[in-house]
Design a protein around this nucleic acid. Structure first.
Lengths: 247, 247
DNA sequence: CGCAGCCTTGAAGTAAATCAAGGATTGTGG
DNA sequence: CCACAATCCTTGATTTACTTCAAGGCTGCG
């Protein structure tokens, strides 16, 4: 099923998060609800904590993140988003956001005004379920991040982070034979894993020397998936790959 | 507004998570959808990871938790639930659960069969939004737990955990002048905060000696809320207290 | 060429884990 | 009502993983 022609904006969402769950009519209604596609530079905060939610933002291309700052201004990443993810859909039922949303790379995004989301889900109850489900997938990832930070050591955390990202990129159809492209730096990984950049660097060296994986120039390459996932205590079922992804 | 008479099962949910957002008709429909109230002993796993979701469970009284096990069987708590919380509503759009759900104390619960939830939200789109919103509040708490584990030291983590629980208990109308009752032990706190029980004990002693708070016999007492919240970097806005709680 | 951003490595310091032992509290059966 | 067990809490000594501080080396780009 190629949605690319009939749904240029939402095709990756459909593949990544909503596959086989929307009718042609629903896809068409969703597609026309978006405003135009917009480009945003890397390292820009798009939405500030506390801001009222007027739109929902779909990430089409690039990498974004959500984060909370601590008192010294150090970030804790709460999630990393890739093409096909809604980055602030959870703000729709909550009215305002409880954290910041920023770009990590240059991105292309499209937005839907809040009222149009309201109208869409009133007209298509099934679409409401698909959108709810998408926010629940983010919540499932949140839970796994809690596990990662609460129970794993530095090597496990980094291994888990990259296991998740590589799996998601693959499920979204964004990985290829050369690896999975994730153009972020070691400091970003540190902010995701609750570690210092220095220590992430040391951990990456160990993982590289052990042949488990490499992360160089923004590309993830898995060397030994089995051992990497054992170290990470990683089980992809929380990404619901069987019910949600490309075949 | 006292829902206790007209909605004996869902009254605390309404107060805690859905206040002023449901019509009398919606409340009545929700109330009759529940099966009977059931008691469960302390420290029982109610729902296992991977289990298909046939019902949604509302916690009426007592304390429950969600958790993931690591390879040595040590738990990481993902959330703690009090009266008025749905403990597995997120499983409704996801079909199966990605973690375990267990009781920490004796509890009273009520369940709604999945099909009835489907029928209810088809009939009352507003109820769908209120339920979605409730799951989004859990996600907001997840995010704060990620921050807690990723950016705070042991004292901050424990202070943050108890700040959250005390606030939630108060918003749910479950706290009183003697403090906020949370009948769990230090090992549970350790599993929530990603620490060892020994270290939680040491941290609690410091917090007690500094006059910030005490936690004894399952009761939280806040000594100096301002300083506790500064230590915890705690800001209650993620609990949406203005829009959601008792007046 | 020279600068900026990012990565890498070393040495010293520290927060929390681990290991170990006892003490308090609650509940229970004689 | 007391003996005893079970559970939970408390404290000390040692070890360890990660941070912090510091410096230098790549790589790509204007």
């Amino acid at each position: 099923m190629t949605n690319q022609h009939i749904a240029p904006i939402s095709s990756r969402f459909l593949r990544n998060r909503g596959r086989n769950r929307l009718s042609a009519e629903e896809v068409a209604a969703l597609e026309v609800a978006f405003g135009g596609v917009r480009a945003v530079a890397a390292r820009k905060t798009l939405i500030e904590k506390g801001a009222p939610v007027h739109d929902s933002t779909l990430l089409i291309e690039g990498v974004m993140c959500r984060y909370l700052d601590d008192q010294q201004g150090h970030r804790q990443l709460l999630g990393v988003h890739i093409g096909g993810d809604f980055v602030d859909l959870h703000g729709f039922p909550l009215d305002r956001l409880d954290h910041d949303v920023a770009t990590l790379t240059e991105v292309k995004i499209a937005t839907i005004p809040r009222e149009r989301v309201m109208a869409l889900i009133a007209r298509f109850p099934n679409l409401a379920r698909v959108l709810w489900r998408s926010t629940m997938l983010d919540a499932a990832m949140h839970r796994e991040w809690i596990f990662r930070l609460g129970r794993l050591g530095a090597q496990g955390r980094v291994a888990h982070f990259f296991s998740e990202m590589e799996t998601r990129l693959r499920l979204a159809g964004l990985a290829n034979d050369n690896g999975a492209p994730l153009p972020i730096n070691q400091a970003d990984v540190a902010e995701a894993c609750g570690l210092t950049p220095v220590h992430v660097n040391r951990v990456l060296r160990i993982l590289r020397e052990e042949g488990l994986m490499t992360f160089r120039s923004g590309v993830i390459e898995i060397g030994d998936r089995r051992r990497l996932q054992r170290l990470a205590e990683f089980d992809d079922s929380y990404l619901y790959p069987d019910t949600d992804a490309a075949p």
